[in-house]
């Protein structure tokens, strides 16, 4: 018998601290597999955020830098400007990190067209601090800090990151994927791999937004959270390619 599937060497053997059923583990695997398959793991420098994935450096088998909250794209910019084509630099960020406290760093690394890859986990909530409203929390969604549901009159509307960034000329590739089903996971892997291939080819700024779950803070079982994601998040955050300069700009 041949091995059809086993844990990639792109991940360490450290058991993650993520809650049961959390999509972070799936996305970690997709990123690590992509780096191994593209034969760049040994020259990759990751930048992790503040949030649930703050300790991602324990799980990936490559060099890592821990950034202050929201600053990962700036840290990655500094690292990539020094390392240049010799290395691969990516950030792994959640929604609060990337789309609230780090909005400026995200937008400006994008508009500069930095040749980095951003993996953005959108699960519509602040996980690490215990389930507060995120910039991507859906209208009406109950969180610890929107106990009556997100009221757009006072708390504003969610940020659609791929749509927003796709308006910037500096962005080479922006795609939104999800991890709620195996077909979606397979598509997510292809997008992540493409985002890294773009960097290898020197094409510029690539971001993959991964719509993911947070069973613990959504108050659902892992299986229920995947269904909630399909029913509620995907209508607000449609999957697809928002920008791909390979195909001539916005799609």
């Amino acid at each position: 018998m041949a091995v059809v599937f086993e844990k990639t060497r792109g991940l360490t053997d450290v058991a993650t601290h993520y809650c049961p059923g959390c999509g972070h583990g799936i996305v970690h695997r997709l990123v690590a597999e992509s780096l191994v398959e593209l034969d760049v793991l040994e020259k990759t420098v990751g930048v992790c955020p503040v949030g649930c994935s703050v300790m991602a450096y324990d799980y990936f088998n490559c060099d890592f830098i821990e950034a202050p909250h929201g600053r990962a794209p700036a840290v990655a910019t500094g690292a990539k400007r020094v390392l240049g084509d010799k290395n691969i630099v990516f950030t792994y960020q959640g929604d609060g990190d990337l789309a609230a406290i780090g909005t400026a760093e995200t937008v400006h690394s994008a508009t500069r067209g930095e040749n980095i890859t951003i993996i953005f986990i959108n699960n519509a909530i602040y996980g690490m601090t215990g389930g507060q409203m995120a910039p991507t929390t859906l209208p009406g969604q109950v969180t610890q800090t929107t106990p009556y549901g997100r009221d757009v009159k006072t708390a504003g509307y969610p940020v659609r990151v791929c749509e927003m960034l796709s308006t910037l000329d500096g962005v080479y590739y922006a795609e939104r994927v999800a991890v709620d089903s195996v077909p979606h996971i397979n598509a997510a892997k292809a997008a992540i791999k493409k985002a890294f291939q773009n960097q290898i080819d020197g094409k510029g700024f690539s971001i993959v937004e991964v719509v993911s779950n947070c069973p613990t803070n959504w108050g659902l079982s892992p299986a229920e959270s995947m269904q909630w994601l399909r029913d509620n998040m995907l209508p607000y955050y449609p999957l697809g390619v928002y920008k791909d300069k390979d195909k001539g700009g916005n799609e």
Partner: peptide, 18 residues
């Protein structure tokens, strides 16, 4: 940089890689 905050974090990134 887009801000002093970004600039110092670019310094962090560049120093991290030597």
């Amino acid at each position: 940089a887009e801000s002093e905050i970004a600039a110092i974090n670019m310094v962090l990134g560049a120093s991290s890689v030597g």
